[in-house]
Simulated assay, not measured.
Amino acid sequence: MSRNYLIAANWKMNGSNALVKSMCAELTPVLSQLSPEIAVLICPPATLLTAFTGVNALAIGGQDVSAEGAGAYTGQLSAALLLEAGATYAIVGHSERRQYQGETDELVAAKVAQAIAAGLTPVLCVGETLAERQQEKTQQVIAKQLMAVYASHPELLVKSVIAYEPIWAIGTGLSATPEQAQETHAFIRDTLAQLNQDAAEQVRILYGGSVNAENCSALFTQPDIDGALVGGASLKPDEFAKICLSIKIGAKE
């Protein structure tokens, strides 16, 4: 089954109004060259969401979303607030939030449900640590993370995006080989197919983990890799543009 691609940028706690201007200037001509089957998403710090104006072909997303709809939750951003700021996506369950903010699978599941209920598309991040990979627990860890969200609510899957981010490859310069990434992406799709075969075939699964202009082309030819969640390279407008342009429609093996 043919699926559209998504190239997503996670700026993390980086960026500025100047970078927004540079990125928009770099991407505007690129977006006009891309196939309609390729979408581009920028997830900047929340203070910069409203700075992206005038680039209609560019999607904007939050780096997180609250599990609550509104109320006395200082510092959190609800799905409604993100939507009002122009976001249509939200990253959920990134490994850095699981590690540094102690987010549990249960909280991540609540955030996915809240995002979808409000009309946002969640980009659910899953992945294993280096120790877990060395102990051959990759599939066990990822299955647990997926089932925590979708086992009770498989209907949410078709409205989601999944991002496989091996934690050992985030910001380290290391990257899974195309074959390693494909193996895990195929496992993710097979696991989700146990809940909903059609949705599992439709859902886009992105790869994240030191993606750059040099390694992305080989990744994008793999049959179950439908794009990338890009970290450090997304802060370099020219390199991020190259990543977006590297997808060759019909090149999947």
Rank of each mutant, 00 (worst) to 15 (best):
G127H: 01
V126C: 07
A8S: 14
Y100E: 12
A228K: 06
Q63A: 12
C125R: 05
Q101N: 14
D190R: 13
T104V: 07
A151R: 13
P122N: 06
K242R: 11
Q180C: 03
R189K: 15
H153Q: 15
E128H: 00
K111G: 05
L206A: 08
N10F: 12
A163R: 09
V161W: 04
A57M: 11
Q99I: 15
Q99K: 15
D226M: 10
E106W: 00
E132F: 01
V149D: 00
V30C: 07
G173Q: 01
D105M: 01
Y73G: 05
L195N: 12
E136K: 08
S234G: 09
R204V: 03
M1A: 02
F52M: 10
K21Y: 02
N212G: 12
L146F: 00
P122H: 06
A148Q: 01
I167P: 10
Q101P: 02
H94P: 12
L235Q: 08
A109N: 05
I249A: 02
E106T: 11
Q134A: 01
Q140N: 00
Q99A: 15
E26K: 09
L82D: 11
Y73N: 12
Q33C: 09
L174I: 04
L27G: 05
L130Y: 06
N10A: 13
G93N: 05
G93K: 05
P237W: 07
D190M: 08
A110Q: 11
Q182V: 07
G86K: 14
T177P: 04
K252P: 11
A79R: 12
Y5C: 03
E84G: 09
S175M: 03
V149K: 01
T184N: 02
P178T: 05
L219E: 07
Q140L: 08
E132M: 02
A148P: 06
A25Q: 08
A90F: 11
A176M: 03
T121K: 08
G15M: 12
A213I: 06
L6I: 15
I162V: 10
S175K: 04
H153T: 15
V108S: 00
E103M: 09
